[in-house]
């Protein structure tokens, strides 16, 4: 074998063809994620904006103006109105309540885990929070309906403060969604805090700062954009959350800011239609795609925004 220099030369071989075939199939796997995105966009746009099939698309029957300005959402009634505002209001009311709970508590726990906690505490707390994040959303819905409303909201807000708390209400849904996104805020914010160089902290301590001063006045501002990004991602999760909201908040589209009333979100409307027997192709059915498109755009915008914020913050420290 030695000395046969022609052995170096390429031959047409099965193994070479095999290498090429493998690389190509791996490329197809990677491409699938792009295809998925395109698939989502095509499906939503096809049914909502420009129809290719026999049925008219949603926005060919309902004007954009009506969709975004009408204050009633009554697709099931004889007098049909397709104003998305009540659904948007319901969605953001619940996301707002969730944010009110998750953002401060999540950030405080991130500060605790990063600046205060002993390694042993962290080793216990972090996996526990991961479990909390892993609990299926249908369980949170059950928890809101069976525990939060009767044992937390009714005694405090109805019996004590005199509000009228419905069986289905935005507050209970908002609270459990807040708990659900809490681990996300906590762990992403902690990553942001951890990315702050130690030199900054040491500079603070050397100037005679207390731990509070360093955490709040030095580390927190330095990590601000990372924390902002985590907030945006968490709120986007809350906006897209479906099951807990469908179970706990009810199915009443209402343009209200009263957290103790039943509201309908964009996601729970979609569930509602899919559970019913709305015939495919009708305007009511197409409205599902219009709502999904709106939801997709909102969450996508928030995700992209958080990435923009995050890439800015990377520029500072790397």
């Amino acid at each position: 074998m030695k000395g046969d220099s022609h052995l170096l030369l390429r031959r047409f071989s099965l193994s070479r063809a095999k290498e090429q075939a493998i690389q190509f199939s791996l490329f197809l796997c990677a491409l699938l994620s792009v295809v998925t995105t395109l698939g989502i966009i095509i499906v939503l746009v096809n049914e909502a904006v420009v129809a290719v099939g026999p049925n008219a698309a949603f926005f060919q029957e309902v004007s954009l103006k009506e969709f975004f300005t009408d204050t009633r959402w009554t697709p099931q009634f004889a007098d049909k109105h397709f104003g998305v505002l009540p659904l948007l209001a319901g969605t953001f009311l619940i996301a707002g309540i969730a944010a009110l709970i998750a953002l401060p508590i999540g950030l405080a726990s991130a500060i605790y885990l990063c600046e205060y906690a002993a390694p042993r505490t962290r080793d216990f707390v972090k996996p526990s929070l991961e479990i909390l994040a892993g609990v299926p959303t249908v369980v949170y819905g059950y928890f809101a309906l069976v525990f939060v409303t009767p044992y937390l909201l009714k005694p405090i807000f109805q019996d004590l403060l005199g509000f009228d708390v419905g069986v289905f209400n935005a507050a209970s849904a908002g609270i459990v969604v807040g708990v659900m996104i809490l681990p996300m805020v906590s762990s992403l914010s902690e990553d942001a805090l951890r990315a702050v160089p130690r030199g900054l902290r040491e500079a603070g301590y050397a100037l005679g700062s207390t731990k509070f001063d360093v955490s709040v006045k030095i580390v927190l501002p330095a990590a601000a954009s990372g924390i902002m990004a985590s907030f945006l991602l968490a709120i986007s999760r809350a906006v897209g959350e479906t099951m807990a909201v469908s179970i706990a908040a009810g199915m009443t589209p209402a343009l209200t800011m009263n957290p103790f009333r039943s509201v309908q979100t964009m996601t729970s409307y979609i569930v509602n239609v899919s559970l019913g027997d709305t015939p495919a192709g009708s305007v009511q059915y197409q409205s599902l795609y219009a709502i999904a498109l709106t939801l997709f755009c909102i969450t996508l915008a928030m995700n992209i925004l958080s990435q923009v914020v995050l890439s800015r913050y990377r520029e500072v420290y790397e």
Partner: peptide
């Protein structure tokens, strides 16, 4: 491109995947 796309896909609400699955 794929990497950016992946992080965006991870943020798409699961119900939207449901609609995709229903249609496709």
């Amino acid at each position: 491109l794929i990497q950016v796309n992946l992080s965006n896909l991870a943020g798409v609400p699961s119900i939207v995947y449901g609609i995709l699955g229903l249609t496709v």
